[in-house]
Design a protein around this nucleic acid. Structure first.
Length: 504
RNA sequence: GGCCCCAUCGUCUAAUGGCUUAGGACGCCAGGUUCUCAUCCUGGUAAUUCGGGUUCGAAUCCCGGUGGGGUCACCA
């Protein structure tokens, strides 16, 4: 079973080991990302292992959610998903081995007793630590107790002679030291003979030949216990790299229960995030590149990433509840918006296609006969959008004649001058008479019309913008009209009369 | 409470004893461009937690205070 681990520095093996008791959240995704980056950088193997030993809280839905989240993010794994419950026997064997070799012992203290002692210690404000009384039991007594059917757990026998110092070199935090006296004889096997996480996790990591354990800093405090287990089992411990935690703006740990879906990965997918934009943002939460670069392609990030540049202080996910514009960390939105407006159009289109499809706005022509048109529309509007969903909401007027009019825009741009009731149809007529329909011809029509009627061009321009898009904001009007095409523009300008009448 | 860890602009961070009047990014504010909005460009705002050392010189090293986080289950 667990003999010498074949740790080979040239073949890096890392794992993401979530417990399926909830949703994939920001923190978990970041942990997965860092593991994935390290594996890819080293040409190693990225393993997905589901730690489902908590039977009561683990759910199949949660497993699905995690798998889908990772797939969506693009964090593909090379092995797995493995399920920890499949290794239960191995964990027990390890416990037996520890017992046989004198590194563990039966403890017959009842949970009730210990809980009581713990409470008393708490009341007296003193630290409670199991005193190891069962450690002194003679083998005769143990045999007798077991034969009598007394319930027992297996505890790890923490070395006491000379109060040794437990030490390990964390790839992020550096040297971590802990006195053995500060570590109690912890339970590794329950009274029903099922293993506890502290044991299962270490055994699985050795079984999976994990070389680097990259995990949240909440694992830092129990690493010494795992080092002890590795030592007792005669296994070389992996390299540990703890990453600082991500907290909320009140410095509390992020959790779905208190923060809601804004911390879940699926929320970002639904809200129109580009997966790589989210990864890029997440990578920078606790890590920075040497040259200060912030935007990376996948290949660039893999190249630049290094465990040694992970910092040691917790970072804050700067999300302020109730802020409609900044519904998540503003910098995350900045990353998404920047990708949307500057990435290669061909890379962006698939996301928009899905979005339009979901809203019944997609035409297959957009990939064939109207492809060029489609790309220029996207290019025209994308600098104003922050999320992919904007293309089907704010951008709806580009793909459908059935779009909403913003009441404020109608009031501001279509109703300030009753003469617009005449002007807009007149403009429609003049535009309809154009032989072509390019930006300059359109602009000339508007400018000349303004001169002719002795009104400001802005009045007509803003009115026309609202007439064709329902909005008071948007692309430059002449480009917009040229893209929408003569038929649509003429119809919408004529129809705007009805919009105005309804308003008045 | 014990133990462990951490501490630079509001937020993410750079600066691994001198190139630093502490740099960049986001946000925010102002200006430019303009038919609106966004983009884009320019500028501005704003930080080394405090106190002692060490040193010619400290954000950086040491000690202490304070603050924050993690962890102390027959959860993972």
């Amino acid at each position: 079973m667990i003999e010498e681990s074949e740790t080979n520095l040239h073949s890096v093996r890392v794992r993401f080991a979530p417990s399926p008791t909830g949703y994939l959240h920001i923190g978990g995704a970041r942990t997965a990302l860092y593991n994935w980056l390290w594996a890819r950088k080293c040409g190693g193997v990225f393993i997905l292992r589901i730690e489902d030993t908590d039977l009561e809280r683990s759910t199949q839905d949660s497993v699905q959610e995690i798998l889908e989240g990772l797939k969506w993010l693009g964090l593909d794994w090379d092995e797995g998903p493995y399920f920890q419950t499949q290794n239960l026997e191995k964990h027990k064997e390890a416990a037996d081995k520890l017992l046989r070799e004198g590194h563990a012992y039966h403890c017959f203290c009842s949970k009730e007793d210990l809980d009581k002692q713990r409470k008393e210690a708490e009341a007296k404000k003193t630290a409670f630590m199991y005193d190891g009384r069962c450690r002194k039991l003679g083998s005769e007594e143990v045999r007798h107790n077991l034969a009598a059917g007394m319930s027992s757990v297996i505890r790890f026998k923490v070395p006491r002679d000379g109060n040794p110092l437990i030490t390990f070199e964390d790839a992020v935090y550096g040297k971590i030291e802990k006195r053995a006296k500060d570590v109690e004889d912890f339970v590794i096997l329950r009274s029903d003979h099922t293993p506890l996480y502290i044991l299962s996790n270490a055994v699985d990591d050795s079984l999976d030949r994990i070389t680097h354990v990259i995990r949240g800093a909440d694992g830092l405090a129990n690493t010494p216990k795992q080092i002890l287990i590795y030592n007792a089992l005669g296994i070389n411990p992996p390299t540990f790299a703890h990453m600082p935690l991500t907290l909320d703006n009140k410095k509390a740990k992020l959790s779905k229960r208190v923060h809601g879906e804004v911390v879940t990965i699926s929320y970002y997918r639904r809200k129109g995030f580009l997966p790589w934009a989210l990864c890029n943002f997440l990578a920078l939460l606790g890590w920075s590149s040497q040259d200060g670069k912030e935007f990376f392609t996948e290949a660039e990030l893999i190249e630049a990433f290094d465990l040694s540049r992970i910092n040691r202080h917790n970072s804050i996910f700067n999300y302020v509840p109730g802020d409609a514009k900044n519904w998540t960390d503003p910098k995350a939105i900045h990353f998404n918006a920047t990708y949307i407006r500057s990435m290669a159009l061909n890379d962006l289109v698939p996301y928009i296609k899905d979005e339009l499809k979901e809203n019944g706005l997609w035409l297959t022509d957009y990939e064939t006969t109207s492809k060029e048109w489609f790309l220029s529309v996207i290019d025209l509007i994308r600098s104003r959008y922050h999320v992919v969903t904007d293309f089907s909401s704010k951008g709806r007027f580009c793909f459908s004649d059935d779009f909403e009019f913003d009441p404020k825009a109608v009031k501001k741009n279509l109703c300030p001058d009753p003469k617009l009731l005449d002007y807009l149809p007149e403009l429609a007529g003049e535009l309809n008479d154009l032989s072509g329909f390019d930006i300059h011809e359109i602009e000339d029509v508007f400018r000349d019309f303004a001169d002719k009627k002795q009104v400001k061009a802005g009045l007509l321009i803003n009115a026309a913008r609202t007439a064709v898009s329902g909005s008071s904001v948007g692309p430059g009007l002449f480009e917009l009209l040229a893209i929408l095409g003569k038929d649509r523009v003429v119809k919408r300008l004529n129809d705007s009369v009805n919009v105005i009448m309804k308003r008045v």
